[in-house]
Nucleic acid binder design. Structure first.
Lengths: 336, 336
DNA sequence: TTGAAAGCGCTAACAC
DNA sequence: GTGTTAGCGCTTTCAA
C-alpha cells in the first residue's frame, strides 16, 4: 500500500502538504493540489485509518448498539439502523455495530474505536446509562429514560402522539375509545414510553368527554385475540381503537373481524407504527408514524455535533404527524 | 487515558513486557504478570485500537455489507447479521456495517479499517465480486455467484433443498406438486439460487414420476393471490405445494383457503424459510430451514480463517434439513 | 525471562 | 503557501 510519503515524493512536496491538501485545513496552491491529486490517483493512495486515528484522535466511526435478538419488531429496528447508517455516511462516518453484552461499551469506547455512540432500545432505568455518562465519547440515547444523567436523548413525543391519535377519533365523533397498547413486559421495562402515550391518550379523551379503556397486549396472535376478546366483553359498544403495538396490529384487525367488527365500517382504527407497516395492511391504516429514519438520523447528528463540545447535550422529542388513510371514519349513526 | 507506558512504569517493567503479557506471545513470569495485571486494573488501561492497528496491521474488525433497504425479508437479514455479529464476537472481533454504495468496499478495505469482509445478498453476476477479489483482505460471499473469482462462498445447498422438499411430499404419496417460488425479479437477479432450488425440485419430481408446476411469486398479498389463482386454474388437482418465498408464505396459505383448500387437509405444504418463520404460522409449517445464523457464523469463520493465508478459499454449501411439522400429510384417498 | 529501540503512517504545531 | 519534525501508542525484532 502506498503511504503519504510515497504521495509526497511523487508529487514533489512534503508530507504535511499532502496531509493538508487532504484535510483542507490550510490553503494549497492549485498547482500543488493538482500534482498531489495526480499522485494520489496514480498510486491509488488511501490514508491508513489506524494511523490517522492515532495521530488525530478521531476514528470516523460511530458505534451503534442495537438489540439484535430476532422476533422483536425487527422491521422497526432495521429502520432505525438504516437511519443511523445513512446519517453517519452522510457525515463521512462508518458504523460499528455492537452487541448488548456486558462490557462492550467500555471496551469499544475505551480503546478509542469510535468517536461517538448511539444506543437503541433504552429502558426506563437502563444500566448502560451511568456507563455511557462516564465515557469520553458523546453518547445519544434513542428513547427517554427516567434519568438521562446528562446524556442526549431522541425519541418520538409519545405524549403528543397519544393525544393526536385520540383527538383524530374524537373529532370524527367517536366517544367510546380504546387503546390497545404495548406488551405488559414492555410497559414495565420502558415505563416512560408506554406511559407517556397513555397519558396523552387519556388526557385527550377526558378533555373531550369520551370514555376510554386501556389494554396492554402481547405481540402474538393469541395475545391480540385475548385483548380483543377482553375489549368486546368490557366495551362492546366501542367504535374506535388506537393500536400502539406494530407486531400485534394485523392480529388485532383479524380478531376484530371474528367479532363481526370490520375496519373501518364498525370500528375505526388508528395505529402508532412506522409508515411502512401502516400501508402494508389492508385496509391501509390511518397512523401516527414513528419516524424511525428521522430519529436515527437525529441521533447521529446530535452525537457528532457534540464532538468538540460544540453542541450541548439535549433532549429532543420529535412531534408526531398523523397520516389519514382508510381505517377511520365517523361512527355509524346509532340505530334509532 | 492510560497508555502502555504508564502500565509499564507502574508495574516496574518495560513496555514490551506489558505488550507480550497482553498478547501472550511470549512467556512471562507469574510474578511479573501479576504486577502487570494489577497495574492494568488500577489504571483501567485499554490498548488504543488505532495504535494497535498501525503497529500490527490487524484491526480486530470485520466488515459486513448487508442490504439495508427495508421491506426485503428484513427478518432473514437480521438473522444473518446476528449470526455474523455473534461469530465475530466469539472470535474477539467487532463488526463494521457498511452500506451498498459505490466505493465503500474499496475505501473500507483500502484504509485498513477491517481485517476481512463478509458480503450478503450476492447476485449471480455481482459487480462487487471483482472488487472484492482484488482486495488485500479476505472476503466471503453469502450466496453463490456464477463466478466467485476465487472468493469463498457460503450458502444453503438449494439443489438438495429442492429435492428434499419434493421428496418429503412424494414419499407421503403426493403425485401432483407445485413450487411457488421467488419473485421473478429475484429469479432474474440471483439466478443461481432460485435455479438450483428449481432443478432440485424438478429432478426429484421426475425421478418419482410426479407431475409438477413451477410458479414465481411476488412477495405481496396480490402476488400470492395471483399465483394461487394461476395454480388453481392450471392444476386444480394439486395436493402438495412447496413455497420458497418467506414473505409470501402467509398470503399463499390465506389464498389457498379462499379456494377451499385447507392446509394440510386438502393441500400439504412445505416451506423453505428460517425456522422462526415456519413456527410463526398457523398451522406450524413443515419446512426446510434456512440456517441463517449458521451461515453467518460460517462466513465469519471462513473469513477469519483465511487471515494469514492459513486456510484456502472454499465454497461451502450447507446441507438442508427438513423439520416435519403440521402442514404435511398423505393425500386424501381419491373419491371412489 | 526481560529490555531497548526501531518503526507502523499520519497529524499538527512550529518555523519560514 | 510550504517544509520540518515531534509525537500519537503500540508491536516486534534484536540483544541480553
Amino acid at each position: 500500500m502506498a503511504t503519504i510519503d510515497d504521495v509526497a515524493q511523487q508529487a514533489g512536496v512534503s508530507r504535511s502538504t499532502v496531509s493538508y491538501a487532504l484535510s483542507g485545513k490550510r490553503p494549497i496552491s492549485s498547482d500543488t493540489r493538482r500534482r498531489i491529486e495526480r499522485a494520489i490517483e496514480s498510486l491509488d493512495y488511501r490514508p491508513h485509518a489506524g494511523a490517522r486515528a492515532l495521530a488525530s484522535s478521531r476514528t470516523g466511526v460511530v458505534g451503534l448498539m442495537a438489540p439484535l435478538r430476532t422476533g422483536v419488531d425487527v422491521n422497526v429496528i432495521m429502520q432505525f439502523v438504516a437511519g443511523v447508517v445513512s446519517a453517519a455516511t452522510a457525515a463521512s462516518h462508518d458504523v460499528l455495530m455492537v452487541t448488548q453484552e456486558e462490557g462492550v461499551l467500555e471496551r469499544v469506547a475505551g480503546t478509542s474505536m469510535v468517536d461517538a455512540l448511539v444506543v437503541m432500545d433504552i429502558e426506563s432505568d437502563d444500566r448502560r446509562i451511568p456507563v455511557l455518562a462516564g465515557l469520553r465519547q458523546p453518547a445519544v440515547l434513542i428513547g427517554l429514560p427516567a434519568d438521562p444523567q446528562g446524556l442526549s436523548c431522541v425519541d418520538l413525543d409519545f405524549f403528543q402522539t397519544g393525544g393526536l391519535a385520540a383527538r383524530h377519533l374524537l373529532d370524527l365523533g367517536h366517544r367510546r375509545l380504546a387503546l390497545i397498547g404495548s406488551p405488559i413486559e414492555v410497559v414495565n421495562r420502558h415505563t416512560s414510553y408506554a406511559e407517556r402515550m397513555t397519558r396523552g391518550f387519556v388526557g385527550a379523551c377526558e378533555a373531550a368527554g369520551g370514555s376510554y379503556l386501556v389494554i396492554p397486549t402481547a405481540a402474538t396472535v393469541a395475545g391480540a385475540q385475548e385483548s380483543v376478546r377482553f375489549l368486546m366483553t368490557m366495551a362492546p359498544d366501542v367504535t374506535a381503537v388506537v393500536v400502539h403495538n406494530e407486531m400485534a396490529l394485523p392480529h388485532v384487525i383479524a380478531a376484530l373481524r371474528t367479532y363481526g367488527k370490520e375496519v373501518p365500517g364498525d370500528v375505526s382504527l388508528v395505529a402508532v407504527c412506522p409508515e411502512t407497516t401502516a400501508v402494508a395492511q389492508s385496509p391501509q391504516i390511518t397512523s401516527v408514524d414513528i419516524p424511525t429514519e428521522a430519529i436515527g438520523r437525529a441521533a447521529v447528528e446530535m452525537a457528532l455535533g457534540q464532538l468538540d463540545h460544540a453542541a450541548p447535550s439535549q433532549i429532543r422529542l420529535l412531534s408526531p404527524t398523523l397520516s389519514d388513510r382508510s381505517s377511520t371514519q365517523s361512527p355509524a349513526a346509532p340505530p334509532a
